[in-house]
């Protein structure tokens, strides 16, 4: 009942070690941002992200989530940069005071495809990796258990928090208060909503910290984990190989003067 978008489709991507997926995602992002030409992003999309999405059987959900995130950004990006890009010289279409420049569109295409890669790669990671597994894997690798605790705990608190907010909002509406009207009026309605919600959540903190200490959270012992993290020697090698390949992909074009 956590607030993540993880879907368990049991694919081979799902079964990978979470750190392997994290490294792959970071490599993809570094490549598309280090080689800022639009076709590099297109190539990464075609040979890495889309095949992985197909194998993961999460393609539909991935495209739905990513489209919701990306569409507004891309539309604004192309409109704003197409019309007002400071380096725009070559006019493509002119319509009254508005002029679309090819430099502006080219700039928007470069940024836009990069953002598509960034969003698709990270949403795919989140869709195929349970946050608890990601945290266990990273904690096993030396990340402070406090990070894992905060992230997992927040993910499970948000639905509880939202339920309380909705309950209070419904109560306000039942008392005949409308959530429409001017911003000032809406703020007036927000305040009595936020007050009790926030205070209640904060006063629980004392209890929760006592309960965590009682279960050894402050212990300096080396943590163990009930559920083992899946791994294989192929993955262990690829976690080193992927950054190396990325580095080569980035450095070689410069060394040979191709870019």
């Amino acid at each position: 009942m956590s607030s993540t978008v993880y879907v368990d489709r049991g694919s081979s991507i799902h079964r990978l070690n979470p750190v392997t997926k994290l490294v792959a995602m970071l490599c993809i992002i570094v490549i598309v941002f280090a080689l800022p030409v639009w076709w590099v992003s297109g190539l990464v999309l075609a040979v890495a992200i889309i095949p992985a999405a197909v194998v993961s059987r999460c393609g539909r959900k991935l495209s739905r989530i990513s489209a919701t995130i990306l569409l507004p950004i891309l539309v604004v990006l192309f409109v704003v940069q197409g019309l007002t890009f400071p380096g725009g010289k070559t006019a493509l279409i002119s319509w009254g005071v508005f002029t679309v420049t090819s430099e502006g569109l080219h700039f928007a295409l470069g940024i836009g495809l990069r953002l598509v890669c960034l969003v698709l790669a990270s949403v795919l990671l989140v869709l195929t990796t349970h946050p608890g597994d990601l945290m266990s894997a990273l904690t096993a690798r030396g990340m402070s258990p406090k990070f894992g605790y905060i992230i997992s705990s927040t993910l499970q608190l948000i639905p509880a928090f939202r339920d309380r907010a909705n309950a209070i909002l419904l109560a306000q509406q039942a008392r005949g208060l409308s959530v429409r009207g001017s911003p000032l009026r809406r703020i007036k309605i927000m305040m009595p909503l936020l007050g009790p919600l926030i205070l209640g959540m904060f006063t629980d903190v004392e209890d929760r910290s006592t309960a965590m200490e009682a279960r050894g959270f402050g212990s300096t012992a080396r943590r163990t984990s009930l559920v083992p993290v899946p791994d294989s020697s192929v993955q262990r090698v690829s976690r080193w190989a992927m950054p190396m390949v990325s580095l080569a992909v980035i450095v070689v074009p410069f060394a040979t003067g191709a870019l």
Partner: peptide, 21 residues
């Protein structure tokens, strides 16, 4: 993060949930 005592660590998830909600 290492210097944070448990009470603070227990406080942070509530604060983040507050930010987001």
């Amino acid at each position: 993060i290492h210097r944070l005592p448990t009470t603070t660590v227990a406080l942070i998830p509530v604060a983040i949930a507050l930010n987001i909600v």
